[in-house]
């Protein structure tokens, strides 16, 4: 079984969000880049499955400029065998999915995080599956390989389902797929330097959407403080002022 893990390169989750160019672009100055947290969990599970013996190779892929290479190297250090970077500026989800469609058709299982922590699109995995005519399963919180068959756990409202699905398939994964993201060891970091990282040119693809501009949320009014011994007052405020119940 060959696994492809899609890696989005995102700002560290503690980044202060600012915009430049008349609020038309995200301010990348001083930003630390990381593997999108859900993609990192997907990669961790892929590595665990490979260690258990059910997986031949793990490839990681990203659509981005050379600035994303340290993130791909980190994915190699975690345990991927090789990396592919499609060299272009990611414009929108359809554009990104169209780029990935050129490489993804050769894999049995494609794993992608349920969203990226920057633009929160939740779109690339499903679009890619449709472009390839593969099935897709979303909200996957567990993955096992039993006798070469894929068995998945997915989250549904108020519960979980155990399902089996034919490969090739795109799995869109969420929290639970792995417990903690794997931290690369020194040996992994050394080995990652020698692992192949292929750069491919972009293909022609239209973009269906574009960002007009960004806004920061309006500043919040100060928190109204109530004394610890006056819980009654809190309930009154919630009832009469906030009309919360």
């Amino acid at each position: 079984m060959k696994i492809l893990v899609l890696i989005s390169n995102v700002p560290d989750t503690t980044t202060k969000i600012r915009f430049v160019d008349n609020n038309k672009a995200f301010d990348t100055s001083g930003v630390q880049w990381i593997i999108n947290p859900w993609d990192e969990l997907a990669l961790t599970r892929a590595v665990e499955l490979k260690e258990a013996g059910g997986v031949e190779t793990i490839t990681v892929a990203n659509v981005g400029e050379s600035i994303t290479e340290p993130t791909l190297r980190k994915a190699l250090a975690v345990g991927a065998d090789d990396a592919i970077r499609i060299d272009t500026t990611p414009k929108d989800a359809f554009y990104v999915a169209s780029q990935l469609a050129q490489i993804a058709k050769d894999f049995d299982v494609i794993m992608v995080g349920i969203e990226a922590s920057d633009y929160n699109g939740s779109a690339v995995g499903g679009m890619l599956a449709e472009l390839l005519n593969f099935n897709s399963v979303s909200a996957v919180s567990g993955m096992n390989i039993e006798n070469g068959q894929l068995s998945l756990t997915r989250e549904i409202d108020g519960g979980q389902q155990k399902i089996s699905v034919k490969t090739p398939v795109v799995t869109i994964v969420q929290k639970g797929i792995a417990i903690d993201p794997r931290i690369p060891a020194m040996r992994g970091i050394m080995m990652a330097r020698k692992k192949p990282l292929t750069v491919l040119p972009a293909v022609e693809a239209g973009e269906k959407t574009s960002y007009v501009n960004f806004e920061l949320p309006p500043p919040k009014a100060a928190c109204k403080m109530v004394d610890e011994d006056n819980v009654k007052e809190l309930v009154r405020l919630l009832q009469e002022e906030a009309k919360a119940f």
């Binding site: 929160n120 499903g126 897709s136 979303s138 269906k208």
Partner: peptide, 24 residues
């Protein structure tokens, strides 16, 4: 809906219809 099922289906439908999608 921007819930588990909506997020799973909408991107596929957008490709089928050659539509443009915004989620959430």
């Amino acid at each position: 809906a921007h819930n588990n099922l909506g997020k799973a289906i909408a991107p596929r439908v957008s490709v089928k219809l050659k539509g443009g999608m915004v989620t959430g």
